[in-house]
């Protein structure tokens, strides 16, 4: 069991570590062994798949804003903003995760675990539930 304080310290360390890796990328190049190029390409395709997920979320935000004129203004703008924010977060996390995986492969470590997919699924489930309620209860303008 970890206390919230320990979790906060761990979160801060992870963030500081990420920032350092982005500010000094050449250190990663010199770290460990260059992995088989096929693994690097697989990692690159995973990054691109997450980037497309991010683009789909951003596109979804635009679609909600443009193609649901009968939805109440507040609800429409909230859902659009949630999808746009989710898309931006997804893109930033995609590039960070790509780099973490690249570093783990160089060091011969296990690939990093991530709770992001579960959080994204919960968030999208919540958006879908709100939309179902909006349609069922007729929250028009």
């Amino acid at each position: 069991m970890i206390t919230p304080a320990q979790a906060a310290v761990r979160g801060f360390r992870t963030a500081a570590d990420s920032l350092r890796r982005w500010l000094f990328p050449e250190r990663i190049r010199n770290e460990g062994e260059t992995p088989d190029y096929r693994f690097s390409l697989a990692n690159e395709r995973t990054f691109l798949a997450w980037l497309r997920t991010a683009l789909a979320l951003v596109g979804g935000g635009f679609a909600v804003s443009q193609f649901l004129p009968d939805l109440h203004y507040v609800l429409r703008t909230s859902i659009a903003l949630a999808l746009l924010t989710g898309g931006a977060l997804c893109a930033v996390r995609a590039v960070n995760h790509w780099q973490q995986c690249e570093r783990a492969m160089r060091r011969g470590e296990d690939l990093p675990a991530s709770r992001f997919p579960a959080l994204l699924a919960l968030g999208l489930g919540a958006v879908a539930a709100v939309m179902v309620l909006a349609v069922a209860l007729g929250w028009g303008r």
Partner: peptide, 13 residues
Amino acid sequence: VTACTVALAVLGA
């Protein structure tokens, strides 16, 4: 490419 995606989201907001 990440920055372009984030910029599109910001532009949307």
